[in-house]
Design a protein around this nucleic acid. Sequence first.
DNA 1: TTAGGGTTAG
Length: 635
Amino acid sequence: MSLQKRCGLPRLQAAKATTTSTASTTVVPWNSRLRELANQCHFAEALTLYRQMLRSGHPPNAFTFPSALKSCAALSLLVTGKLLHGHVVKTGCEPEPFVQTSLISMYCRCSLIKNARRVFEDNDSSRKLTVCYNALISGYTSNSKISDAVLLFRRMREAGLSVNSVTMLGLIPGCIDPVHLGLGMCLHGCIIKSGLDIDLSVGNCLLTMYVKCGSVDYARSVFDEMPGKGLITWNAMISGYAQNGLATHVLDLYREMEFLGIRPDPVTLVGVLSSCAHLGAHGVGREVEQKIKFHGFGSNTFLSNCLINMYARCGNLVKAHAIFNSMVEKSIVSWTVIIGGYGMHGHGEIAVQLFDEMVRTGIRPDKTIFVSVLSACSHAGLTEKGLEYFTAMERKYGLQPGPEHYSCMVDLLGRAGRLKEAEDMIGSMQVKPDGAVWGALLNACKIHKNVDLAELAFKRVIELEPRNVGYYVLLSNIYTDGENLEGVLNVRKMMRERQLKKEPGYSYVELKGKVNIFLAGDRTHHQTVEIYKMLYELESLVKELDEYKENKIQGKNEELLISEGVHSERLAIAFGLLNTLPGTEIIVIKNLRACRDCHLFIKLVSKIVDRQFIIRDATRFHHFENGICSCKDYW
DNA sequence: TTAGGGTTAG
């Protein structure tokens, strides 16, 4: 069957299109409508109109093809695109630079770079305009062929063609990988030299490039130096900070934006909410929820998903579930975040029920939701259920498990004490195990005090992630548990040799929408003097407690022999006490696990002052029950 | 009348 018949397009009469012919004047209203539809992203309708146009005997001309080809490109309709190419040739429109550009762009969008190149090379060089080069450069970049894009860029300059902002917008996204940062910086130099840095889109694109390369400081200097910032600029910087885990920077920038009276859009608020979730900044999150209502973004599924995630991570599952229930259209992400929320707080049964309910509503699970549900099973001790889901994942849904699923399974079996099965599962993996898989086994060895297997897991995990301090700490703690001092010293020696240091622990308290961060021994806060005074008083009061004194004297409970010190948690507690009224709930968030010492300190302080303290780990809520962490930390 | 580009959740 011919391509034309397959696509339902009528045979085209050869008709030379010139702007002066009588035929072309009759097609003007068709072309206008076609362009209108394509510009409004009604691509399928645009192609239907194109077919109608041909059937009614109106031959297309050079003004018809760009809109039709753009529609094919947007819908990735390569067969129709090739057919249109045939029409272009038949009507003699091929040399037209605008048509040529549209053809190049269509082939690039359909990932047929060779055809795009052929169109480009087959044409007379005198008709190759900047736009043609731009289309092919952008095509190379979006098909991960950055070196070809650069070669073409050089050729373009050698041909004496002018380079404009769109050329740069085509090239820069090719440098979004840290390995291409050098090239990106060269382009940045070129941009400044040619004065294109004043273009808002170029600035936004450069900023995004630095963000994706992880060079947030460079991104910030581009941001600061941009003469006119648009909403996209603010959003790019906010989501850039969020993607790089710099949540406090996100909140500061959002405050600045508010101060300047710039109205946020849903994209801004997505970045802000993900940072609130990261920090456990419940208050700012609530404020953002009000803003969402105020601006009428309530029906935005992205934002609802972010709100659910934020409330769930801040421990407010009631609110998270209420938002989830109120959503008219729930996406798979909505189900993933609510299931993940219940899972991370140890409510595995609810997570499992929700998963089954989702499947009943006809949503097909994807790989990500299996991570949520498997990890929920693992934290709630639902071992058999987890194994059942893991089998169904491949057999029923045809999803090949990745390392992230195996690490959940190793964790699940490991926590249940089935260490041999966990080890065998790693051995049976179709994909290469990553650090998290061996790390899960190492963690299980700590729980079940299996030193031999721990040493093997440590050996493997260190091969994969030699600079991850957490694993050294874990092994050292395993040795401490087994009273193996030599082992502890060996780990410390290894760390010294490799110049590894444990990441400093910090704590934060959110107050009146501002996140107040403290490091151990921190003296940078503007209330430092009052905080230290308060901490000193608290420590003295704790020692006065009968409970403390009695245990100390009789040596009944070693746990109550807490040490003195300016731990970050204690500074956060003192700060919270200074700035809140009696009866308030103070949530202290930790970046790493809070030490047992600090949990005891909080417990005793709570007896003296009328405040309710909750200490939460920013990423690992499941280690805490009723605000008390069950993990020991000997460092 | 015509083409090429930048920010978004689990």
